[in-house]
Simulated scan of single mutants.
Amino acid sequence: MKNLVKYIVVMFVLTGIISCDTILEPIDENRLDFDFVSSDPASAEGILLNGYSSLVDQFSYNEAATDDAVNNQLNNNFKRMALGELNAQFNPTSRWNNYESVLWVNKFLEIIELGEIVWSRNEEINEMFYMRMEGEAYALRALHHFYILQAHGGVGTSGELLGVPYLTEFIESDGDFNTPRLSFEATVEAIMADFDAALALLPTDYSADQSAVNSIYQQYDFDNYLVANGPDYNLRMSGRIVKALKARLALFAASPSFLNDQGYYNIAATEASEVLNTIGGVSGLASNGLDYYKTYDRNDDAEMIWRGSIQNNPASGIEKRMFPPSVNGNGEINPTQNL
């Protein structure tokens, strides 16, 4: 009996030691980390696609934030701002959150710099995947910084025309985020540099037209080219989109409200004309305008540069909000007498 008691006590002590050791050592939960991402093509591309989040769409109806229109919804953010609610905690026009997308893009650029991802066993296809996605990343980083500059650039308390912090590296959650602002012009030039880096890597369009292949891709077999840059990637960042955005950035910078610089007006004109010339110049524009809700087709809607995908089932939510009550709408946005 004594031996049995001793045996039980010994087993209890050993069990306690083992249990304590188990408690102190974390259990392997089989979670994937960035080491896995750097070798898995789909996961790596997922990091890049996070850069497409928080893109600014056209349905913000910010005319109601100007003297051109009034919103009749009491909970409208612009109305709340006009009534004095704007403060550090409530700023619906803030775009600081776009830095999250910037960090994702920077992480993707770090991953592909390792050169460990195999998009395809075909060497040409693999190389083109690297080129195109790196170009997308540079363009997205530039665009998100442009968004932030539009919302937060301006004259500081020192009287200097300030831009925004320009992040080119991934920062861990416990890292130092106290990156100083650049000057306004230095921010514009940094954005321009990323747009130019993107233009050196991206196809003008994702097309099956062999005659439209950029010079940097003409050395590759066309069938391989279609795998990496074919029409399946339409709506992803392209050279045409980047040129249009570069023109918009230059026009923004050239404004008398900012740099008031003729050189930037020239850049805007040059980039915009290059985009226009791809559709035959001004004469290539639709004479009666375009309907945004129709199926997107580059051949039919040549002046449409970038748009989101259309849902399969047509919806009338926007019409319901904006049409006047006489046609069963809510009349949400109303033009002012001044307009």
Rank of each mutant, 00 (worst) to 15 (best):
A250T: 02
L48C: 08
A193W: 10
S273P: 07
E189A: 01
R141Q: 13
I8R: 07
W104N: 10
Q89V: 12
L167S: 15
D176Q: 04
L55G: 00
N299H: 11
Q73P: 10
N338E: 15
K6R: 14
F323H: 15
S38M: 07
V5F: 10
I171H: 15
T179C: 09
L339P: 05
N338C: 09
I191C: 02
L14T: 14
L140Q: 06
G230A: 09
A44F: 00
A44N: 06
I117P: 02
T187P: 03
P325S: 01
S60D: 09
K79I: 11
D21G: 06
A208L: 15
I171E: 13
E100D: 09
Y99N: 01
V56R: 11
A212R: 07
V5T: 10
V9N: 07
R95H: 11
Y206I: 01
L276E: 07
D196T: 07
G230T: 08
S53L: 12
Y296M: 03
S158M: 11
E25K: 14
W104A: 15
E271D: 03
T204M: 08
K107F: 14
E185N: 06
D33Q: 14
V9A: 04
S326A: 12
I310P: 07
I111Y: 05
E319Q: 13
L182T: 01
P26F: 13
G159C: 03
E303N: 12
F36N: 12
D300C: 06
I318H: 07
Q210F: 06
V282S: 11
N87Q: 02
W119F: 05
L199S: 02
H145R: 04
I125Y: 01
D67R: 08
V188H: 01
L162M: 11
D291A: 15
A82I: 00
E169F: 02
I117M: 08
N87T: 04
V275M: 02
Y147T: 03
V70L: 09
I318L: 11
E116N: 11
W306V: 06
R95M: 08
E100C: 06
D57K: 09
V102G: 04
P180A: 04
N87F: 05
Y292K: 15
G154K: 00
D291V: 09
E116R: 12
V227K: 04
Q219V: 13
N91A: 08
T179K: 09
D68H: 12
P314L: 11
E189G: 00
L251Y: 11
A142G: 13
P256D: 11
E332I: 03
A44G: 08
L83C: 08
Q337D: 15
V188M: 01
M133Y: 03
I17F: 07
N178H: 10
T336E: 08
